[in-house]
C-alpha cells in the first residue's frame, strides 16, 4: 500500500541573529541554512499494518507523513501510496487517504461538528445511507453522539480530537496518517482513542502510519516501529526486536516481606556487584535491579538469599528506555 524509496527532504531555513542589530541586519542581508529534515527514507507498509514513526522533536516524522499525504514535495526520492505519487494530489488518491494532525484543527472552527461532517459528505461524494451508517458507528464508538450540534470551538480538547478522528475516517480511507493523535488528551481520552483505532483497524484493515511521543500509543497500537534520528532511519522492525537486538539487561524485582528478627541490618546493606547490576529502585517494600542478561540467575539467587523476598519477578527492560537510548545513541 505504501512504498517509499530513498525519500529525502531539505528545507532552506532563515537564520536571524538575536537582538535589535540582528533584526536590522536581516533587513539587508539574510543568512540561510540548508536543513535536512529527512534523509534517504525507505519504507513499506502493508494493509492492516500500523507502523509507528518514532523520533525526537525535529527527527523528520511529521515531514515524512506530510510528504506521504501529498502536502509537501520531496527534494528527492519516490513514494507510491495506493498506486499514486502523493504530491501529485490526484483526487482518486485524496479520496483514499486521511491525515489527522493532533496539533492542528482541521474542522471548521465556527461550525457544529454535524455540519462539518455534512460538508465532508459532499466533499467526498459519499452516498447518504453509507454516510449515515458510518457516522452513526463512528460517533457511537467514540461516544460523542450528544455533541454533534455543538460548535467545534466550544468542544473540549478530547471531544474535538474525537470529532477530528471521525472527520478523518468518514470516507473510510485505505491509508491513514496519524500525526500525534493523542497529544494533549487526558488518560481516559487517550485510552478511548487507542481503543477506537484498534477497533477501526480490525474492521477496515487500513494501512496506518502513526507518530507519537507517547510510548503507550506506540506500544499498544504498533507492532512495528521505525525510529528516525536527525532525519535518518536507525531502526525498522517489530517492537520485540528492539528488545532482542538492543536490550542487554533485564530487571529483577523483589517484593519484600517482613524481615526475620535480627536480619534487618544485613539486608539493608545488601548490594549486587556494580560491575553487572545497578539498583533502579529501593524501598522498604520493593527492590529493583537492572542486571546484565547473563547474570540474571545469579542476581535472583543472591537476592533470595540476602533479602526477605516475598515475591520475585524478572522483566524485560522498559521499551521506552531502549528507544530513547537508540534516539540519543546513549551507551547501553
Amino acid at each position: 500500500m505504501i512504498h517509499v524509496e530513498h525519500l529525502s527532504k531539505s528545507f532552506r531555513v532563515f537564520q536571524k541573529d538575536p537582538g535589535f542589530r540582528g533584526s536590522l541586519r536581516s533587513l539587508f542581508k539574510r543568512k540561510w541554512i540548508e536543513k535536512h529534515a529527512l534523509k534517504d527514507l525507505n519504507l513499506h507498509v502493508g494493509p492492516g499494518e500500523i507502523v509507528g514513526l518514532v523520533g525526537a522533536n525535529g527527527a523528520g516524522k511529521t515531514t515524512a507523513v506530510k510528504m506521504l499525504a501529498g502536502i509537501i514535495h520531496p527534494t528527492s526520492g519516490t513514494a507510491n501510496v495506493l498506486g499514486h505519487t502523493p504530491w501529485q494530489r490526484k483526487n482518486a488518491f485524496r479520496r483514499e487517504i486521511a491525515l489527522l494532525m493532533g496539533q492542528k484543527a482541521q474542522l471548521w472552527w465556527d461550525l457544529p461538528a454535524g455540519d462539518c461532517f455534512e460538508l465532508l459528505r459532499d466533499i467526498y461524494s459519499l452516498p447518504e445511507a453509507e454516510f449515515r451508517k458510518t457516522l452513526g458507528s463512528l460517533t457511537a464508538m467514540l461516544g460523542v453522539e450528544g455533541q454533534l450540534r455543538t460548535q467545534i470551538r466550544r468542544l473540549s480538547l478530547g471531544e474535538r480530537m474525537k470529532m477530528e478522528i471521525i472527520a478523518a475516517l468518514l470516507h473510510q480511507p485505505k491509508v491513514v496518517f496519524l500525526d500525534e493523535p493523542t497529544i494533549g488528551l487526558d488518560l481516559t481520552a487517550q485510552r478511548a482513542v487507542r481503543k477506537f483505532l484498534l477497533e477501526y483497524r480490525a474492521s477496515h484493515r487500513p494501512a496506518m502510519i502513526l507518530t507519537s511521543h507517547y510510548m503507550e500509543d506506540i506500544e499498544q497500537l504498533c507492532e512495528r516501529i521505525v525510529i528516525l534520528r536527525e532525519g535518518e532511519k536507525v531502526f525498522d522492525g517489530p517492537l520485540a526486536d528492539i528488545q532482542r537486538a538492543h536490550s542487554v539487561r533485564k530487571v529483577v524485582i523483589a517484593r519484600l516481606g517482613e524481615p526475620a528478627a535480627g536480619s534487618e541490618a544485613a539486608w539493608e546493606r545488601f548490594e549486587l556487584p556494580a560491575a553487572w547490576a545497578s539498583a533502579v529502585r529501593r524501598t522498604a517494600e520493593e527492590v529493583r535491579y537492572s542486571v546484565d542478561r547473563g547474570r540474571v540467575a545469579e542476581a535472583a539467587s543472591r537476592m533470595l538469599q540476602g533479602m526477605p523476598v516475598a515475591d520475585l519477578s524478572i522483566e524485560e527492560e522498559d521499551i521506552s528506555n531502549l528507544i530513547e537510548a537508540l534516539l540519543h545513541r546513549r551507551p547501553q
Binding site: K66, A69, G70, I71, R89, N91, A92, R94, R95, I97, A98, L99, M101, K104, Q106, I123, Y124
Partner: peptide
C-alpha cells in the same frame, strides 16, 4: 494543509 487533502 487540510485543503490540499480534500478532493476538491
Amino acid at each position: 494543509s487540510r485543503f490540499l487533502l480534500y478532493p476538491i
